[in-house]
Design a protein around this nucleic acid. Structure first.
Lengths: 299, 299
DNA sequence: CCGGTTCTCTGACTAGAGTCAGAGAATGGA
DNA sequence: TCCATTCTCTGACTCTAGTCAGAGAACCGG
């Protein structure tokens, strides 16, 4: 990371916190404390459990309770116990609350507009494009990769999505029973491992690795959520698997894949995999890839 | 301004305030309230008058006074009356203060680094480039254009810089006495007007307009500070002058310029001016331009 | 139906970031 | 010289945005 890069990031931080930050408070904190506004926003059109709200915003339970009471006395929300578990309470917007939320929405639009307003059309196009790029890359940088048990709810969520997607995309559909599926034991230590990628706590990708002693390490069940594609997440998962495989003493990484998964095949090529002849008889595979790995590899 | 643009700006605002904002507080507000840290930073290496500090940060005088006392009791600054006007007080960093400020500097670097850290080299390059673009265009959008009297200190500052620059850039140097200079009266109502562009309150550009009844309006003394060039500020000044000239009933805008000012000549061409034969005998002019204007023109 | 757990609420605090109204010293202009 | 103005400081508040420690209701498993 060189000096010029750091300096540019600092200039960016300064300009943005000044310009966006100040306007943000000006527009959104107008007649309601920011905390309440955030809460109002997060409740959403269909209501939310208090517990989920707390998690999403990372706030103290006492604090949320107080904020909600304040919104309630203003007639913006109703709080009622859930029928099936009366400890949990559900918040719902009243009509007034919905109106207030719409007002916040309008203000966010105004804020965005006020940033663009002084610029001419050409500048606007360039600013929006640059913002999209910053947004995309900062989001990419926010995704965290962690080891997880394949039975963890987040891992399960990813795997279900993965199978659903295979079912939709494979010409022949996908029936887990017909495939060479590793059982969960093969994807947890000491026989392998499983990674989950999370964005703001939500699972958005996964990848498994089999580590058979004396044989090549094998990538299994790599999946990236559709809304986070294009962030380089697949590449990051591969890199992480590769370095972990190397740390476990493996010097070859391999995988098989279906011809319907074009983007993945492209990634394997560009990441340094080479196509090889079939090393298993997975009925859903059309391509088999291998990559020689070294401990020093870092991307 | 279309919906897609607004939405992208809103996504950007959200990502950036979350990612940069949260880290900002985490890194910079570590062992010192953000208010004090900002002040410490703004005092700078060579010290500042309390009054200027207040202006720069837009804070209440009582509040600043209290913050300074707190920094003083921590041994980070000294506050002393200015010798020439003992009402005004000057703040200076002590050695401890300088060390603390250096620590803040390091943290800003760390913050910047932490944004780049999860990305690979290619992504980093793209992020930094996009940040530079956003920074540049948001800065451009922050510049305010206001009418001003040509004798106003900010206008005078611009004009002095303008003349100095002409002196340096013209092959023959520049001697105001030899040039066809409008007197200040011609650049203030009702005979004309004068615009000053300001960034965070600092003058960074100017432009004058002569409005002789029954004759073409004439652009005079247009200047943009070197560090704000490339922001489209010249174009904005021209557009503003054009619309004001139109509002005063003029339908032609004209100007003369020196061959040394290549960027300006390029701007005049691209803005829609056409070169014409000399309409005056300004000794420093090599090119004369004219543009037909309409009331409806907007850029 | 008992005991531990989960979930929400209340009360009691704290710190930060300001705002507002003077008071009191210095200064500058008539 | 004196009066208005400028500049800084002090005291007295306010509002956000939390944190922490229980208390009490509801639920769940054995």
């Amino acid at each position: 990371m060189d000096r010029a890069e750091i300096d540019q990031v600092r200039r960016f931080n300064r300009t943005v916190t000044e310009r966006v930050g100040v306007l943000h408070d000006h527009y959104l904190g107008r007649d309601r404390p920011v905390g309440e506004a955030r809460l109002l926003w997060e409740i959403g059109e269909q209501g939310q459990d208090v517990r989920r709200l707390r998690e999403r915003l990372g706030l103290d339970s006492g604090y949320v309770s107080r904020l909600l009471r304040s919104l309630e006395t203003d007639g913006l929300v109703t709080v009622e116990p859930q029928p099936r578990d009366r400890r949990v309470r559900t918040v719902r917007l009243t009509d007034a609350g919905r109106a207030e939320r719409a007002a916040l929405d309008r203000r966010s639009d105004e804020l965005a507009g006020s940033l663009l307003e002084p610029l001419n059309a050409a500048q606007r196009v360039r600013l929006v494009a640059a913002m999209a790029e910053v947004d995309r890359l900062l989001t990419a940088a926010t995704v965290a990769l962690d080891g997880a048990d394949p039975d963890h709810p987040d891992a399960q969520h990813c795997l279900r999505s993965y199978f659903t997607e295979l079912q939709e995309r494979f010409e022949t559909g996908f029936d887990p029973a017909r495939s060479l599926l590793p059982d969960a034991g093969e994807l947890r230590p000491p026989h392998g491992l499983f990674l989950v990628a999370r964005l703001h706590g939500e699972p958005v990708g996964c990848a498994g690795l089999k580590l058979p002693p004396g044989a090549p390490a094998e990538v299994k069940r790599m999946w990236v959520a559709p809304h986070t594609r294009g962030l380089g997440l697949g590449r990051r998962l591969l890199a992480e698997l590769e370095s972990r495989a190397a740390r476990h003493g493996h010097d070859v990484l391999r995988l098989d894949t279906n011809k319907a998964l074009g983007a993945a095949i492209g990634l394997y090529h560009s990441y340094g995999f080479e196509e090889v002849t079939a090393f298993n008889d997975e009925p859903y595979a059309h391509h088999w890839f291998e990559k020689r790995i070294t401990t020093a590899s870092s991307e």
